[in-house]
Structures are given as C-alpha cells and as structure tokens.
Design a binder for these strands. Structure first.
Length: 869
RNA sequence: GGGCGAUUAGCUCAGAGGUAGAGCACUACCUUGACACGGUAGGAGUCACUGGUUCGAUUCCAGUAUCGCCCA
C-alpha cells in the first residue's frame, strides 16, 4: 500500500460528483484499460502464470443471465489473481455452434423461399460467416460491457483458421492412435436437423403414449393349441422392420415356442421366435417384437441372435421403400396407418394408454430416431480410463473439482462411457479431414469405399496414391478422391479449447509454454459432460505429458429462470442482464450475482484482508462479497466515519490529518479488495481518493498486506464498548419514546477506568451520536435517571418521561427472563459432572465466565426492576 | 431403478459440535452533517421427522418424508 497515496480530499471540495453515473464511468474505465493494454499479458513477463480460458458463448443470440453470472465469477477470480501479482491471462472467444446456427440460417433461407441446397455449400458458408460476424460481434460487445478483464487481442473463435488447424491435427493424431474409427451403427438421428447427434444431445422425455397389442400369427404346425402370439409395442410402425419376436427363456408361457416362427402381418415375412434374457416377462404380454434397425435394445438382441437389420425409415423421418405400401408416409402418419391396417385385418387386440420415455433431440425438439448409419466415432473408453486414473493421481486429483462432489458426477460419467459419435451431416463446422478414394467404388461414397485421413488434400492425394495408385492404374482407372462431406460435432473443437487457443499444435507457441495447463475452469454443472470431460479426454490423448488441461474446475450453479424462480427479487423471471446494466451498471449486476453464490467449507476468523483473500482464493466468492459489504457498510461507514466525524471536521489539525490518513488508508485497502467484484466503481474511487495518474490502474495494484503492528486489542475493546454504549442509549431512548432530536442529559456509568478514559476522550463524539445535552460519566448512576444495561460492568442513564416507565419495565422483565433462562442453562450444564469431567477446560472456563456475567446482569436487572416498583 | 443435493425467520438463503444469523418483507420512530433506492430501534424460528454417537447435536452418522436435479 503506497503510504503517500493514502489521504482524502479536503472536505468541501467536489472531488466526486453527487450522483454516480454507472454507464459513463464504466465506459470510461473500460476504454482506459483497453487503450493501455492493461490486460494484455506477456508470456515472458515475471510472475507466477495464472490462466483462464472463458467458456466460449455461442454466436447465436444475446447475452443472458447465465453468461453474466459466469463472467462475473471468472472476472472476479482473474482480477483477484492479478492483484496478487500473478502473470494473468484471461482468454476470450466464441463458439460456432453448428446445429444452432445452421438451424437459424435454414429458417431464414426458408423464409426467403430458398434453401441451403439451392444456395450451395460455399455460398451457405459465406452467409454463415456473415451471421457470425454480426451475432458474434453482438455477444462479444456485451461481454465487454460487463468489464471483462480479458485479453481481447487473443480472442478466438472455434471455427477460426488456427482452431481449424488444431482440429485437423487432433483428428489425424487420434486416428493414428486408433482412437477414431468409422462404422455403421445405430445412432441417434435427428430428423429436424438431418444429422446424427451424440448421446448427450438426446434428452429423455416422459410422454403420454399408447401401448398397442398386436396379434402375430404363428407359422402353423400340426397340433398347435394356439395360432398366434400377442406383442405389445409403443411404436407399431416399426413392425415393418421386425426380424424376430423375443420371449424370456425362463417364461413358461412361451418356452415351447422358441424356435418356431411368425408370419409377420402386413409384410408377409417369416421371422423367428427367439429367447433373450433382456425380455421382461412382466411387460405387456411378455412377447416383444424385435426391430434391430430401429431400437437400441432390439439392436443388441439382433446382434446376439444374428438377426438381419431392416431399415424401414429414411433419414428425413419418412418411411422408405422397405416399408412397402407405407413408403413415403411420415413416421407419425405411418404409425396410424399401420395400426389401422392391423385393425382392418383383425390383428389389433387392444390399445392401452401408456406413459413412457421418448428420446428427444436437444436442439431439434423432435423425437430422435435410432437409425443405422455410417458415422465417425471417438473410442471413448481408453480416453476415459486415462481421466479416471488422473483423478487418483498421488499428488491430488486432476482436475480438482470445487465443490468436490462434482468429481463423483464426472467420474461416474467416465465409467461405462459409450463411444462418441462425432460426425454431423451439416455444413457449418469443421469438415472431417478424411478423403474417400471414390474411384475404387465407382465414383460414389459407400460403406465400402476406402479412405485416407490427412491434414490437407495434397497429403490425402499422396496417401491415396501410395495405397491405391498402382492398382488403380493397372485397372485403367484414374485415382479420384473426395473429401467427406460431413463436419465434426461442435464439441470436438470446443474440446480442444484450453490448448488450441494457446497455440497448439505449434510446438513453439509461447502462450502454450507459459499458460498451459490453465489454472482454473469456471463453468456450470450442465456442461460437465459436454465440455469439461471432453476437454480432459482430448487433452489426455493429445498433450499427455501436461496432465489435466486445468488445475481446478469451479462448478457454479445456474441462474434460474422461468419456473424455478431465483431472481424473485426483481419480480419477473428471465431478466435481461443488459437491462440491468443499463439501469444500474455492470458493477451492481456483478456484485449482486456474486453475492448470491453459495460457498462451502470452513470459516476462519482473521482480519478482513487476510480472510477475504482466502475466500477469493478458495472460490468462495459469495462469502467474500458479503464480508466486504459488511466491512464497508457496517464497520467503515456506520462506525468509523461516524466516530471520526468530529475529528475530520474539527479544529485540531494533527488529529484531523491523522483521521483523514486512517480513513484514506482504510478506503484504499477496501477499494483494492472490492476491485475484483466491482472493478469500475473501485477504479474510479481509487483515482479520486489517491489522485493517481490516469495511466495508473487499481486493476494492476497489489493486494493490501495485514500490518500486525497496527493491531491493538485494548483499543479495539474500548471502541467496542463505545459502540455498545451508544447502542444502549439509543435503545433506551427509542423505548422511552424520546425523540431523537430531543437533547437530554445522559450518563455513562462504569467503574472501569479504561472505559471512563475512553468516554472522556470521546466525549464530543458520544454526545453527538446519542444526542445528549450533557454527557457525564461516573462510577455510580445519577439519581432519578432510568438505566440501560450495556453489560455487567457498565450502564447508561437518562431521564425519561413518566409514561414510558411501563415500557421500560416490560423490557427489563423480558431481558431478565432471557438472562435467567441463560443462567439456568449454564448452571444445568455446569452441574452435570460429565460436563465438568469431559469437556475441554477452556470450554468449562468460558461457561463459568458466561454464568458470572449473566448472574451479574440478572442482579442489575432485578435491582432496576425493584426501583421501578 | 441408481446417484447427488436441498429441507433454518413470511420470502431468498448464510452458518457452525457449546444453545441461531444476513438481506428483503413487517412494526414503531426519524428527512441528524455519507446515504430517504436512507437512518435508528424492534418483533419474528421445536434449525423437516425418528433414532444413534457425544458431557453437549440445529451442526456428525443412520434411517424416514417431501422437493429438486442428474444418470439408466
């Protein structure tokens, strides 16, 4: 703390405007910080590196409360670390959000009467970039408006050329390691976006549906007692692709039928009856239809029994030619049509209402279709295994979750993980760096077309030439390669964010050397799987030496909107943060958001700056905010300034200067500590208080150090006595109905000399604080005054109107009852031999002291009551 | 079905093995020299329930109930 700077402007000078103008002040300091490059760190600068990459917001839409909350938390952490003297990098950026953006653009095109196919891939991409420039610009502007202390020069976008290089490199490396493969599997198909999506992008929803009971005729055999089975299904339209009926092997009702066959209605296919453990005998009739190409469970049954997979649905959600006469119908129309056809043939036994889970596409908001499709996958288990091992690292878990319990959520997800489908049949995104040697399969891409994975087309061609060139030429074919039209899941590029933004895969990248792994990742629990786990998995494979891509993962809650009110304070839900910023300023919004954060863990009583540093450092930001608020308001303003006023406005020059110094010093320390939470206001006030040059910034100052020499316990207890005495007098006055403006003779009575000395030394202040006409102090109370009890060692007295005596008496009785209850409790405890014998001696001693104090107070109270009659 | 979290003042939530706090709301009084989007003072809680550990449990443990979230 620079000593020279600690002084206040002389009273009466208009150093600050009367009302605070958040918009103007905040804009001014944001411009000043940016112009000075205050948050542009140098990787070669001294200081312990500290780095954060922000969760890149999507380039769709506008800043919402969740962004504001996340930003407030991150910026508080990085500003605090900067004040600690660390070499802090906070790196911003945005996410290209394939599906979301493409959906928006396609809707726009549709409104214009055109389509992406009509436009063509290149023109569509151009349009998407234009959208990104505008929409991405909007959200970046809004992040700036919050006062984010990031390095805007290093701003990145998940689809920028540098990141594309990283994505290609990552894909190639993972493919080389055998961690990426291509194959035909049952994937989640979203008919709305016309693309495969990953398991994470599917949300199970409970819906009210029906359970249809269908008669499936048995292939007749001589001597049959029954001629059909009944299967129950929630998706009758898929029966067109049935390739078996399954029963539980232990089900006595059907055991004898296993091995027989069914004549599949409407289709006429003969399908077997198989026995499979998976079938629940208690569900429906205990017989289930098996459609391997349209249901994950049936797919598994099909695998176990070697059943054919018949796909009866096209990728747009309509039935295909394999559906026979139902071909061309939408899947939901087909459902009705199949049911009607079955009914017409007398094969519909009954329909029951049935509530069940249906997979919905997160983005598309329509049911996803399990569909057989050839896609690219990341082999998840080896990556997940590495992450699980890192959690058991001998030096502590990597990464370390705060709060710790999220570690379990993370670990559980990484256990029994399924492979990650990373290809998307979309345009807006990173094109998959694989080239098909289409000349091998007649110029078209099929399941069997060989491919090469390469960093660019030239490399791909060279590889293809090496592998297929000779054979191709000898067969008289020209070698032709064609890049995979598909793109990668957005989360594949987001998953590289902590290192791709720092320069990976460039081995010389200085930022990467200094700031990787990053220090802390701050994000919401909703994207632990989507993002946090993908980053740790990919980092484990691509930068295995560096450990986890971030030291800590600070998981915060969500700002609740709509139904789950959380913003009840400001009434209506889903509040636009920009409106709040407009009205109250970014600082106010940030402070309010951070104050709401819950902290967890132990609390230690230390002086404010030490304690505050601890809270910031352990990410208990909400507690830090509350503590500072209390200090600023209750201690500094309510108490210190009030008591210092006579000195500040008094004639004693030395005393006045001292008071101003102390106040200035306290204020400055407060401003530093407040800065992470309210950067603009603190910066502004700091300049006003210290008169610092416009080129100097509070943002770049140092955290205040506690000064042990300034601690004075006797002074502190005397001051506390003063505060308590004033409160006791005010209390007595309020109770007696004495107007605050009415000046009265007031007495403070204490036999303790140190306290008397304090009262004498502060006579003028106390007189003013309690509105006394005459303040006197002596060991014994003045006759005729009513007394209020400060503690067993001090009373205050004043003359009160006769009619308030009853109120006083009531109060005394109440106080007495409370004290007596306390005495009873303490006596009971002390009388218990177990307590005296087993409790720690200091607890017993404290208990005895409390009892003595309570008894003395009770004595005083009884005396007072006796005098009142 | 499995897991996690919550249950404390009218509301939103802190808290901690030694007998409970804040903000808002409420009541009374007050425009006093930083502040009326303010001040001073006050009322308000069986800390969900049942057991256990302990000298002592609202706090730790187990179970129950209700609510919420995640995974299947």
């Amino acid at each position: 703390m620079p000593e020279a700077a600690s002084s206040l402007p002389a009273p009466g000078t208009d150093a600050l405007p009367k009302t605070y103008d958040p918009a103007g002040t905040e804009a001014r300091w944001q411009a000043a910080w940016e112009q000075a490059g205050a948050f542009h760190p140098d990787p070669n600068a001294p200081g312990e590196p500290f780095s954060v990459v922000i969760p890149p917001p999507n380039v769709t839409g506008s800043l919402h409360m969740g962004h504001a909350f996340n930003t407030a938390l991150i910026d508080t952490v990085v500003r605090f670390q900067r004040l600690q003297g660390k070499n802090v990098l906070c790196l911003p950026g945005t996410d290209h959000a394939s599906i979301a953006v493409q959906t928006i653009l396609e809707k726009q095109l549709k409104a214009e009467g055109t389509s992406k196919n009509h436009l063509g891939r290149d023109a569509f991409f151009e349009r998407a970039w234009a959208w990104k420039a505008e929409s991405g610009g909007t959200i970046v502007g809004q992040l700036r408006r919050l006062g984010y202390s990031v390095d805007w020069r290093r701003e990145r976008f998940t689809l920028d050329p540098g990141l594309n290089k990283a994505v290609v490199e990552a894909f190639v490396k993972l493919h080389e390691q055998g961690l990426i493969y291509r194959g035909e599997y049952l994937v989640n198909w979203c008919p709305a976006s016309g693309s495969a999506v990953s398991d994470l992008e599917v949300e199970m929803k409970e819906v009210d549906g029906s359970l249809w009971y269908l008669r499936y005729p048995l292939t007749p055999v001589e001597g049959d007692s029954i001629d059909h089975l009944v299967v129950a299904t929630t998706r009758p339209e898929t029966m067109l692709g049935d390739t078996a009926v399954a029963v539980n092997p232990a089900d006595p009702r059907y055991a004898h039928l296993v091995g027989r066959s069914i004549e599949l209605p409407l289709v006429g296919r003969r399908i077997p009856i198989v026995a499979d453990e998976h079938v629940d005998p208690a569900f429906g009739t205990g017989c289930v239809k098996v459609t391997p190409a349209h249901d994950p469970n049936d797919f598994a049954i099909g695998q176990r029994h070697g059943l054919p997979q018949i796909t009866v649905m096209a990728k747009d959600g309509t039935m295909n030619e394999a559906a026979g006469r139902f071909g061309g119908l939408d899947r939901f129309e087909a459902r009705q049509a199949v049911v009607a056809a079955m009914e017409a043939e007398g094969l519909l036994l009954k329909v029951e209402p049935h509530r069940h889970s249906v997979p919905y596409s997160d983005r598309g908001k329509v049911p996803v279709e399990p569909l057989l499709s050839t896609q690219w996958f990341v082999r998840a288990e080896p990556l997940a295994a590495r992450c699980r091992t890192a959690l058991d690292h001998p030096a502590g878990p990597e990464p370390r979750f705060v709060p710790e319990r999220w570690s379990k959520v993370y670990r559980d997800w990484l256990t029994d993980i399924r492979d990650w489908c990373i290809s998307r049949q979309l345009w807006w995104g990173h094109r998959i760096p694989a080239w098909f040697v289409v000349s091998e399969t007649g110029g078209v891409i099929t399941e069997a077309t060989p491919y090469v994975v390469a960093r660019n087309e030239a490399e791909a061609l060279a590889q293809a030439e090496a592998q297929f060139g000779a054979a191709s030429r000898s067969a008289g074919r020209e070698l032709v390669i064609e890049q995979d039209p598909d793109i990668l899941d957005t989360w594949f590029s987001s998953g590289l964010w902590p290192f791709s933004t720092l320069g990976w895969p460039d081995p010389e990248a200085a930022d990467l050397a200094t700031w990787y792994p990053t220090s802390v990742l701050v994000t919401g629990f909703d994207i632990i799987f989507f993002w946090v786990a993908r980053m740790t998995m990919l980092a484990g494979a691509l930068l295995p030496e560096a450990g986890a891509p971030f030291g800590d993962v600070y998981i915060h809650g969500l700002v609740r909107d709509e139904n789950n009110r959380k913003m009840s304070k400001s009434a209506g839900n889903g509040i636009d943060p920009l409106l709040l910023i407009e009205r109250y300023g970014a600082d106010a919004l940030r402070f309010a958001l951070v104050r709401e954060v819950a902290g967890a863990g132990q609390d230690i009583r230390l002086d404010y700056d030490r304690k505050c540093a601890e809270l910031y450092g352990s990410y208990r930001l909400g507690e830090a905010a509350k503590l500072l608020y209390e200090f600023a308001w209750n201690d500094l303003c309510d108490q210190y300034i009030e008591w210092a006023k006579p000195r500040l406005f008094g004639d004693d020059g030395v005393s006045r200067t001292a008071a101003r110094r102390v106040l200035g010093h306290s204020l400055e320390a407060l401003l530093v500590m407040l800065h992470p939470l309210m950067p603009h206001l603190s910066e502004d006030l700091w300049h006003a208080v210290t008169g610092a040059e416009a080129t100097e910034f509070l943002a770049l100052q140092r955290w205040p150090q506690p000064e042990p020499a300034w601690l004075d316990p006797s002074h502190e207890s005397a001051f506390q006595f003063g505060i308590d005495a004033v409160r006791a007098i005010r209390n007595l006055r309020a109770l007696s109905g004495v107007k605050p403006s009415e000046k009265l003779p007031i007495g403070i009575h204490t036999p303790t000399t140190a306290r008397q000395d304090f009262v004498i030394a502060n006579q003028e202040k106390i007189t003013r604080l309690v509105g006394a006409s005459d303040l006197h102090w002596e060991a014994e109370p003045t006759a005729g005054q009513q007394l209020g009890i400060v503690d067993s060692d001090a009373q205050v007295g004043l003359t009160v109107p006769q009619q308030s005596l009853d109120a006083l008496k009531e109060r005394l009785q109440k106080d007495l009852a409370k004290v007596e209850k306390e005495i009873a409790g303490l006596q009971g405890r002390l009388a218990n031999p177990n307590f005296a014998g087993k409790a720690p001696p200091e607890v017993v001693a404290e208990c005895q002291a409390n009892l003595a104090e309570a008894q003395a107070q009770a004595e005083l109270l009884r005396g007072r009551l006796g005098e009142l009659g």
